[in-house]
Design a protein around this nucleic acid. Structure first.
Lengths: 337, 337
DNA sequence: TCAACATATTAGAGCGCTCTAATTCAGAAG
DNA sequence: CTTCTGAATTAGAGCGCTCTAATATGTTGA
């Protein structure tokens, strides 16, 4: 590995001082055009590119935004990261990712590693960390939480409005004529709670009897929930699943049991994963504005970094209904085909 | 933000020199136990943690492995990263991710950003970069390529054996009794080429007439390919798709056209994405040893970094057949149900 | 007791950069 | 031809750490 050229090398090669090269590299306006050109040419010729680490050390500022992705396998985060990355780059920051595999211990390590880079700010995407760890991180740099709430005054949060989303699903089904709408909830997570709450509120609003089957965010769980419904012998005309995976499991179990979707039972998912869009699946679902979540997270960090805001930001974004082929009017009761 | 304590602070607080603190932090064996304890206590009390950037700058070494993920949305890479991360951490390195959205220009930028951290090594996961850019990167630090070949002697490669994988699919179908097996290929990529080659070789080996439909790695393309087959009015009994998405699109189009899978047509995918495992899909497919790919990539980098090897490593891993519910014996010709 | 040696500790230069303050340089004004 | 002014350039200290070489400290053998 040949040693990479330094600023001094460029300075010498261009016949100027290191300080001038530094100014050019940060494109300061107070460099004479001729000198600037000469420096740039010298840099080009030597194949020079600035050493960010040294820059960060010397300037005591960082342009790195650390992003902790709780689970890389979940494509949901990929788009949030994309939004975050785009917004960050637009204002001169860069994004460094790290992952924690949804295990608190590994996530702690990952957070520490991120922190040891002394980033300008940190975004935590749906972390499973204890809130104490988050608070401690927030003491050394701005922190924003995506898809997770917090009442800490020094951390910002960006969330999708799960209540609104679930309500959207219910309204859609009611509009189609459904009255027997069951919710397959997502178990423990904070997401699930608000989605369930939204479902319950919407059902109440329509004066319908709510029914919640405890489930989880996997396709297996969705299938199991349907099995439970099957045993009860009272299949509703519509299902609001906790997420897309759960919905797909439910659909699969329904079809196995001889029900047609959506002719006999309508199903709505949540998240609008790439899965839902597959023509084979074509799932009606709730779309979270993922890019926007990322963008807002980046913005929140940058505001804090620049000291433009000290109060906690609490963004709650509106999800959207995406109608595909798993919802339709209910079968006519008593006269089944 | 309160300024974080430095090594000097710890040294003063513990009544020793900065150099000693430095030794303790790198747990050097030549520090007297009493001093070590005192230093550690002081560090603890001040909440000190070393500044990695400063360390990297001073020691002119880095423990960072940069990983460029061409497409975060593709869960395939998530597992490769996991393997890479685990292996890297086990030997004292840490992984920093960056993404390029499968656009050469953005990928270039992402690579430059990664390089500007002066990482100890770089892993490129299925990059779309021109090979010149890769060669240039390899001049400043060790580089390993995953899911992409290279003949550069200073870059290592780790790949799944696509020829073997496609052959596996063909053998499986032949064993089931199929003779009319069509391949829906993946278009441009390097992956596709080797898979197609594997298909052709295996067909020849069984003395069967190969047929390749040009397609792409998306479900839409899979459906389109089936439509083409439909027009030709000669539906084969089995399909070997270029990847899982393609397979799913094909299945969906087949079912729309009244064919049952696998009763009428068997379909094999490639990649064993999480999609394939969904019970609703339950796709027979070829599994790449993703974690292992990551592990080997990390190992290759570390070997180069430590100077233990200078010759190029060319790892070619064996994929495995995962039999699920989209393959079965062929329908009996002429006596269709 | 003291040289001789091993071991523990520290001073101080330097990694590649930024930043402040000082210096140089033009050109305009007197 | 000075003097002044503002702009362009540079010297030099320092960011938080590591590393080499030098120094301090302790142990042992004669």
């Amino acid at each position: 590995m040949p040693a990479r050229p330094t600023m001094d090398d460029v300075a010498r090669h261009a016949g100027v001082s290191r300080a001038l090269v530094s100014l050019v590299m940060r494109d300061s306006p107070k460099v004479a055009p001729a000198r600037r050109a000469a420096v740039l040419r010298a840099a080009e010729e030597l194949g020079y590119s600035p050493h960010v680490l040294a820059r960060a050390l010397a300037s005591r500022t960082s342009t790195v935004l650390g992003v902790l992705v709780s689970d890389l396998r979940n494509a949901f985060f990929a788009e949030v990261v994309e939004g975050l990355d785009a917004a960050a780059r637009a204002v001169g920051f860069e994004v460094v990712l790290n992952t924690g595999g949804r295990k608190p211990a590994r996530e702690r390590e990952a957070l520490d590693r991120l922190l040891s880079f002394r980033p300008a700010g940190i975004a935590l995407l749906s972390p499973v960390l204890p809130s104490g760890a988050i608070g401690k991180a927030a003491e050394s740099c701005p922190v924003v939480l995506v898809s997770r709430g917090s009442r800490l005054s020094n951390v910002d949060t960006v969330n999708d409005d799960g209540e609104a989303g679930a309500a959207l699903a219910v309204h859609h089904l009611v509009r189609l004529g459904h009255t027997e709408i069951v919710h397959l909830d997502g178990g423990g997570g904070a997401n699930s709670t608000s989605r369930r709450r939204g479902y319950l509120a919407a059902m109440r609003e329509h004066e319908l009897r709510p029914k919640v089957i405890r489930s989880e965010h996997t396709d297996e769980a969705g299938a199991k929930a349907v099995a439970e419904l099957l045993r009860g012998n009272e299949m509703p005309t519509a299902l609001v699943a906790g997420n897309d995976f759960n919905a797909i499991g439910a659909i699969s179990a329904l079809e196995d049991a001889g029900y047609r979707v959506p002719a006999d039972v309508s199903v709505v998912g949540y998240d609008n994963t790439s899965l839902a869009a597959l023509r084979h699946v074509s799932l009606t679902t709730i779309d979270q504005p993922r890019m926007e979540l990322g963008r807002l997270a980046a913005t929140a960090l940058v505001e804090r970094i620049r000291g433009e805001r000290t109060a906690a930001a609490r963004h709650l974004l509106n999800p959207e209904l995406v109608i595909r082929d798993t919802t339709a009017g209910p079968r006519t009761k008593g006269r089944e085909t």
